[in-house]
């Protein structure tokens, strides 16, 4: 009886590390940065970090859905740029439309791109890597064509508020991210749709046998990802005050990194969106903290990569026995 109890306690600690490893990594990193930099732990800076991560956050939310179905979307950086350009073109110059039209247009353009990805992947069985790699190039080209390779400046103040404004001291991009995250959290955790996303990722054949429209689910996650990339494009454009044709290059990697740091399995079926949030914050915190400490960008890249791998290592230590 005694042995069993002590055994249980030890198992409890192992369970704690394996279950919350990434959260522990986050807290440790947070403490280290607070200790090393005087300015890290200030409300201003923490708000900064949140604002800086909000765009990657929106992308990572969508990427979580995609990766849960064992997919990948490499095209989001290009979708983001295209959606940003289309949105900006509606609110530039003299005949600026209301900002809400631009937001809707951006999200629609993004969703349309996502629909192309999802259609190819779900209904024509093109591997996600290939389909989205194709759109990565196509959407970037479309952006350049649409904008003539030049920035679209002079955006209406109403539109710029989406990137620069604040409500009660909370920056608007942070509010947008919070809303997106909350909806995604409830969807994955409590909705039938969310459960089906997990089921399709865990074992598509089993999901099909269980009467789930697996193609429909796969299609929908790419459409959703596209829509969120469009929203992120609107946010980025509002923040940089111009739609830049080269915006968003490489953003897919940060979004994927955040999701993977959060412990979501690239083979699908396992993962939590709350941990994606932790992953997003870890990435944002690293850049911010290193900038604050005046670390040169050469070292920053090394440190960033190492911390990402280290965080995931801690998270995966539980599985080592099974390999």
């Amino acid at each position: 009886m005694k042995a069993a109890e002590s055994g249980r306690r030890e198992w409890g600690l192992a369970e704690l590390v394996s279950r919350y490893g990434i959260v522990i990594s986050f807290l440790v990193l947070f403490l280290i940065l607070s200790f090393l930099s005087n300015n890290f732990l200030t409300s201003n800076n923490l708000v900064n970090v949140l604002r800086q991560v909000s765009i990657n956050g929106v992308l990572a939310v969508g990427m979580t859905f995609v990766i849960l179905t064992a997919g990948i979307d490499l095209s989001i950086g290009s979708i983001l740029a295209l959606a940003g350009a289309v949105a900006a073109s509606l609110v530039t110059g003299g005949d600026a439309q209301p900002a809400v039209f631009a937001v809707i247009a951006g999200v629609l353009v993004g969703t349309a791109c996502g629909v192309i990805n999802g259609g190819l992947i779900a209904y024509f069985s093109v591997p996600p890597f290939v389909a989205t790699l194709g759109l990565l190039s196509v959407a970037r080209g479309a952006t350049l064509l649409y904008s003539g390779g030049r920035p679209i400046p002079n955006l209406s103040p109403e539109f710029r508020w989406l990137g620069q404004g604040a409500v009660l001291g909370i920056p608007v991009p942070v509010i947008i991210f919070a809303i997106v995250f909350a909806i995604a959290y409830v969807t994955l955790r409590y909705s039938v749709y969310g459960r089906r996303v997990y089921a399709v990722g865990g074992n598509p054949r089993s999901a099909k046998t269980s009467g789930i429209n697996t193609r429909g689910i796969v299609f929908s996650v790419y459409a959703l990802m596209g829509g969120l990339a469009g929203l992120a494009g609107v946010m980025l454009t509002a923040r940089t005050t111009s739609a830049l044709p080269q915006a968003g290059i490489g953003y897919e990697l940060d979004a994927i990194a955040a999701v993977v740091i959060g412990g979501t399995s690239l083979t699908g079926g396992i993962g939590r969106i709350t941990y994606t949030l932790v992953g997003v914050l870890i990435i944002g915190m690293i850049s911010n903290g290193l900038d604050l400490m005046g670390v040169s960008s050469y070292y920053q890249q090394i440190i960033k990569g190492s911390i990402i791998v280290l965080a995931v290592l801690i998270d995966r230590s539980k599985d080592r026995g099974e390999l």
Binding site: V186, Y190, S191, V192, R195, R196, Y198, A199, G202, N203, R205, S206, A207, T209, S210, G211, I212, S265, G269, I270
Partner: peptide, 28 residues
């Protein structure tokens, strides 16, 4: 291969074919 989602929980596997049965206004 086709029966189970091995990484998912017992509960999620048991109810996956019957989810609409457990919903209230779209939520589980």
């Amino acid at each position: 291969q086709t029966g189970l989602s091995l990484t998912a929980s017992v509960a999620h596997n048991v109810t996956v074919a019957n989810l609409p049965h457990y919903t209230r206004v779209g939520f589980l």
